[in-house]
Simulated scan of single mutants.
Amino acid sequence: MRWKLELVPIPVRDVERAKRFYSEQVGFTVDHDIRLDGGVRIVQLTPPGSDCSIVLGAGDGVTPAHPGSVRGVQLVVPDVVAARAELLARGVPVGPVQHVENGAPADGPGDVWNSFVYFDDPDGNGWALQEGPAEPAAPGGAG
């Protein structure tokens, strides 16, 4: 049986502000923006190249978690330095490139799977970019 992570709820105070941040600054694609009875608004966004999406919500309509309480969500990118530069160019306050050395954070890139950049959304939900191996070229040389 195949199990696939589909959706991660991210609690926010202001859904519109969070939608702008994740779509315009971080570069996620807006998949759905719907309003349900009772004033519940659901905004689903997907990171480029990901099969898993996030859903933004305020109040108990999406998640009972408090805004800013989600920490440690990781996105894997093939080049953490380039991803950091892209976020900076879009106005996202991001930390420096770091790696883990002797069990503690150290400045600068490490090996594959050991280079990270951290940032928070406007509500304080914490994200990490982790450098993974570059994806192999598609068959036939395209890629």
Results as ranks from 00 to 15, higher is better:
1 M>F: 10
1 M>P: 03
1 M>D: 12
2 R>H: 10
2 R>A: 13
2 R>L: 08
2 R>V: 15
3 W>M: 11
5 L>A: 12
6 E>A: 13
6 E>H: 07
7 L>D: 12
7 L>E: 15
7 L>P: 06
10 I>W: 00
10 I>A: 02
13 R>W: 07
14 D>I: 04
14 D>R: 08
14 D>P: 00
15 V>C: 01
15 V>P: 00
16 E>D: 14
16 E>K: 06
18 A>M: 09
19 K>Q: 05
20 R>W: 08
20 R>Q: 06
23 S>P: 01
25 Q>K: 15
28 F>M: 15
29 T>I: 07
30 V>T: 14
31 D>F: 10
31 D>Y: 05
32 H>V: 15
32 H>T: 15
34 I>N: 05
34 I>E: 12
36 L>I: 04
36 L>N: 14
36 L>P: 07
38 G>E: 09
38 G>F: 09
38 G>D: 04
39 G>Q: 13
39 G>P: 02
41 R>L: 07
42 I>N: 06
43 V>K: 03
45 L>R: 00
45 L>V: 05
47 P>A: 03
51 D>R: 08
52 C>D: 12
54 I>T: 03
54 I>D: 01
54 I>G: 00
54 I>L: 14
55 V>L: 14
58 A>F: 00
58 A>C: 05
59 G>E: 00
59 G>V: 12
60 D>C: 09
60 D>V: 04
61 G>Q: 03
61 G>M: 10
62 V>D: 01
62 V>H: 08
63 T>V: 09
64 P>W: 11
66 H>Y: 11
68 G>N: 07
69 S>P: 05
70 V>I: 08
70 V>C: 02
70 V>R: 11
71 R>T: 09
73 V>T: 01
73 V>C: 09
73 V>R: 03
74 Q>G: 07
74 Q>S: 10
75 L>Q: 07
76 V>W: 11
77 V>P: 03
78 P>Y: 12
78 P>A: 06
78 P>M: 02
80 V>A: 02
80 V>G: 00
81 V>T: 11
81 V>R: 06
82 A>W: 01
83 A>I: 10
83 A>Y: 04
84 R>D: 04
84 R>E: 03
85 A>K: 14
85 A>P: 05
86 E>V: 15
89 A>C: 01
90 R>Q: 14
90 R>C: 12
90 R>I: 09
93 P>V: 06
94 V>E: 09
96 P>R: 04
98 Q>Y: 00
98 Q>A: 05
98 Q>W: 10
99 H>F: 11
99 H>R: 15
100 V>S: 06
100 V>H: 11
101 E>G: 15
102 N>D: 14
102 N>W: 02
104 A>H: 12
104 A>Y: 10
106 A>V: 04
106 A>C: 05
108 G>M: 13
109 P>N: 07
110 G>S: 06
111 D>E: 12
113 W>H: 10
113 W>T: 11
116 F>Y: 04
116 F>K: 07
117 V>R: 02
120 D>G: 10
120 D>F: 08
121 D>S: 04
121 D>I: 05
123 D>M: 12
126 G>D: 01
127 W>V: 07
128 A>L: 13
129 L>A: 00
131 E>Y: 01
132 G>Q: 07
133 P>G: 13
134 A>P: 08
135 E>L: 15
135 E>Y: 13
136 P>Q: 14
138 A>W: 12
139 P>H: 14
141 G>Q: 13
